[in-house]
């Protein structure tokens, strides 16, 4: 659906005042829950997500166990009140799909071969949704996995780029997502640049795709720095505490 509103003006200003290459405001805090093995709360623009990691623990039921490595089970869930029109509680087809692609993205960076037969459960709760919840959820999951002490090759991070009013921009907001031309969320391993998750909907030329992809990568690196800061902020003071 096209909007009659101008999503981006001739000077390149977006509805919320951002320029095309700006991220929304991001706030990350590690270790916020008592019962979970690892946790993270993350605010990204108007999105609020909370992630809890449990494990590694023996996978149940038994038939889901892999004798050679751990399974990573992400579960993306939207709270009923997180969207404008109340959502019926429980999984729907959309959340099942998102859970699947996030699980697969995380599995690539977790050192799963260290934990045969185990599962690492990543519970992503979307409490406030405003475009880009899968990127917010995956980014928070990366921090929660670190907080749980899970062995990882890298801390996964996600960000989207898209196209509005004929221009490629970073990190679509709500209106931009609803009325824009294309959305391209990606997740990467920032150390290697490997792409862990990629989805696209809308319409992009090959050149626009390349531009959007580069921009989303740039966004990922920026968000990655915020993730690292949040973890170090929580654990820097712990440095002196450990006696070898």
């Amino acid at each position: 659906m096209k909007s009659d509103r101008e999503l981006i003006n001739s000077e390149g200003r977006r509805l919320d005042g951002r320029s095309p290459h700006d991220l929304r405001k991001i706030k990350i805090e590690a270790g916020v829950l008592h019962r979970a093995d690892g946790s993270c709360s993350l605010e990204w623009g108007g999105n609020k997500v909370l992630v809890a990691v449990y494990g590694p623990r023996e996978a149940v039921p038994r038939h889901v166990q892999n004798p050679l490595k751990a399974i990573v089970q992400a579960r993306y869930n939207m709270a009923a009140f997180s969207v404008e029109d109340r959502k019926r509680p429980g999984p729907d087809r959309r959340s099942v799909e998102i859970s699947k692609v996030i699980s697969e993205a995380l599995e690539k960076v977790v050192l799963i071969e260290q934990f045969p037969r185990a599962s690492i459960d990543v519970n992503i709760e979307v409490l406030d949704a405003e475009a880009g919840t899968r990127c917010a959820g995956l980014t928070a999951a990366g921090v929660a996995l670190v907080d749980a002490g899970i062995p990882l090759r890298d801390i996964p991070v996600a960000c989207a780029a898209g196209k509005i009013g004929g221009r490629v921009v970073l990190d679509l907001g709500k209106e931009e997502d609803n009325y824009g031309d294309a959305d391209l969320p990606i997740a990467i391993s920032p150390r290697t640049g490997e792409v862990l998750l990629l989805q696209m909907d809308g319409h992009l030329t090959i050149d626009e795709f390349n531009e959007a992809f580069d921009l989303a990568m740039k966004g990922c690196y920026e968000v990655s720095e915020i993730q690292k800061k949040a973890i170090l902020q929580k654990y820097q003071s712990a440095a002196a505490e450990v006696q070898e």
């Binding site: 019962r35 869930n77 509680p89 429980g90 519970n123 709760e125």
Partner: peptide, 16 residues
């Protein structure tokens, strides 16, 4: 409605 989401406890399971 109340959701006992598995986020909150190692013993909570997803599902109805």
């Amino acid at each position: 409605a109340a959701e006992f989401v598995p986020l909150a406890s190692p013993d909570f399971e997803s599902g109805p």
